[in-house]
Amino acid sequence: MTENKLMQVSASPHGRSSASTSRIMGDVVIALLPAAIFGVVYFGFHAFLVLLASCVSALLAEYAFERGMKKKLTLSDGSALVTGLLLGLNMPPEIPLWIPILGSFFAIIVVKQLYGGLGQNFMNPALAARCFLLISFAGQMNSFSVDGVATATPLALIREGERVDLLKLFLGTCGGVIGETSALALLLGAAYLLFRGVISPRIPLSYICSFLLFEMLFAGRGADWQYLLGQLLGGGLMLGAWFMATDYVTSPITKNGQMLYGILLGILTGIFRIFGSSPEGVSYAIIIGNLLVPFIERITMPAAFGTGRRQYVKKASKG
């Protein structure tokens, strides 16, 4: 029985769901594990070191910055780990370790923290860092090898007009960055995210569909399914569409905006892959898409319940 003790008050609602930022980030890490494990098994121990270096340095960069700036430490929300892991998965397997470490520091400090930390960055940190590294260290970032033997990526082969083994692309036994080769592992992770309600299929599906349509119309190969599947499974599209384009912070929050954003990414990726100088285009497409997010949100604000066309209007009086 309380005596005259005053109680704690706050405005309603008094209930909260069990969802939390760290749980969401944890789910993303779990969803990336199949691709990470496949990458390590297929490319070897150095790939593991690359992932480890990028993750640890991302956490370290976040810690050092927040400590130095006397801000609240936010390592426990898991977002730095996700950034580090995504960046690591975007590295060629035999890259010298100082490159992912530099990339992680760039991602966390320049792209994320200098703009205000979690939720404030307007570009996906991992992708912005990848683009930074691609421009700065084009040689190392574009040399791919399997078991020490230099190989071309499937997209480069397709560009040369060679045929690729689609089954190999699906399973991931081909050249590329650590996390992008196995469509199977990525789809497993994506299915997990969809099942847990972490992502919706709006962005990935509209992205993939608009990309395929654009390729069909402008690649000059028509509905050559061999070519289209190669474009779909080789390269970074699966990793980008399911795990990078769906990044909450840098994608539109409105539902129609997400569809529009996906379509836009598909078109941009198509343009870069068909007309660009590199066979890849996903990273740049998403980065440019990120810049358009505020605009997309503005033009796709939903009509509130019972307003605009949805509002009930009485019929003119009968008779």
Partner: peptide
């Protein structure tokens, strides 16, 4: 147990507020 007594964290723009709003608003914005 008072579930509301939890510290606010930065918005990550996950869009859950948009999905659940019965008035079809964008609470995040």
């Amino acid at each position: 147990h008072d579930e509301a007594a939890q510290e606010e964290q930065p918005c990550i723009r996950c869009g859950r507020c948009v999905s659940v709003c019965p008035e079809n608003l964008v609470p995040q914005l």
